Amino acid sequence: MRRRNLIFSLPLALGVPTLGWAADAEAGDRPDKPPGYPVSLDQMQQAVAQRFPRRYPVQGLLDLDLKAPRLRLLPEQNRLRAQMAVEAAGPALNRRHQGSFDVDFGLRYEASDRTLRAHQLRLARLEFPTLQPRVTEMINLYAPALADQSLREVVLHELTAKDLAAVDAMGMQPGPITVTNNGLVIGLVLKPL
């Protein structure tokens, strides 16, 4: 515990700005607030909203229009859920149909561009209450691919070079990402030799 507190308090003692990496050196003593760089749900929501709305054609029969997702934290699973409104329309349908689409996903850090990205996607639910069951079945055949296309590797947050300067100087790098009740916390690990 002392080493961890030393690692997170060292930049502060040296007067190095860390923009949140060691905002609370005592946080390591509380399981509800792990030490590291915090990312709020609002920050992630703003980042993901920039990639929507999106349209996906289904075999020339219909188009699915996905609206910007509403993100939910799932700390007990260390994952997030994206809940999206979706519209189905096209030659195979006589009118527009409203539905919803939920996808759960984990997070990973991509060092090449300093981003947090969605990965390990799992379709949680796809519903169209007003569609005929056979059309819903057809859409459900494409649902895993739709989940993959719409959210795979979507950027949820980008760290700046300034965010990482002090961490890099200590020989550390972003490590495990923990989903909490308030957002994410990016932990630190030693760089490999």
Rank of each mutant, 00 (worst) to 15 (best):
T136D: 00
A85Y: 15
V16H: 12
N94A: 03
Y109V: 09
G28V: 07
Q50G: 10
V16D: 15
M1K: 07
D113V: 05
P31G: 05
H97K: 14
T178H: 05
A166C: 04
R54I: 03
A88F: 12
L184C: 10
P38C: 00
A124G: 04
E137V: 06
P144T: 12
M44L: 13
V155D: 08
P53R: 01
A88N: 10
V39G: 15
V185E: 11
A27D: 09
E110P: 09
I186V: 14
F128A: 08
Q120T: 13
L131R: 09
V185C: 15
V48Q: 03
L12V: 15
A118P: 06
H119I: 02
R30V: 12
R117H: 01
E127N: 07
L188E: 05
Q173D: 03
E76I: 09
T115L: 02
I139T: 00
N94T: 03
D148S: 15
M172T: 01
V58D: 13
D32V: 07
G28C: 10
I186K: 03
P11H: 09
I139S: 00
D168A: 12
K191W: 08
M84R: 06
L93K: 00
A89D: 06
V39D: 11
E110C: 10
H157V: 04
T115Q: 07
G36T: 02
A166N: 00
D42N: 12
V154R: 10
R122K: 14
L10C: 07
G15E: 11
P11A: 10
Y37E: 12
G90C: 05
G171L: 01
T136S: 05
P133M: 02
K33Q: 15
G99H: 02
A68C: 00
D104S: 11
F52G: 08
T18Q: 08
G106Q: 01
Y142R: 11
L193T: 09
G15W: 05
V58I: 15
D42K: 11
L159R: 02
M172V: 03
N181G: 04
L41V: 09
A27R: 08
V135I: 02
V103C: 05
Q46N: 11
Q173P: 01
R108F: 06
G15T: 11
L61M: 09
L93Y: 02
V189H: 03
Q132V: 07
Q77F: 10
A68L: 02
L131N: 08
A89T: 05
A49V: 05
Q132D: 13
R81N: 08
L80H: 05
Q120V: 11
D29A: 13
F105A: 08
Q98M: 08
A169V: 10
L73G: 07
P144V: 14
L131D: 04
M172R: 04
A13I: 14
G175I: 15
T136Q: 06
S150M: 14
L193I: 07
A145E: 08
L64I: 15
R70C: 01
Q149A: 14
M138S: 07
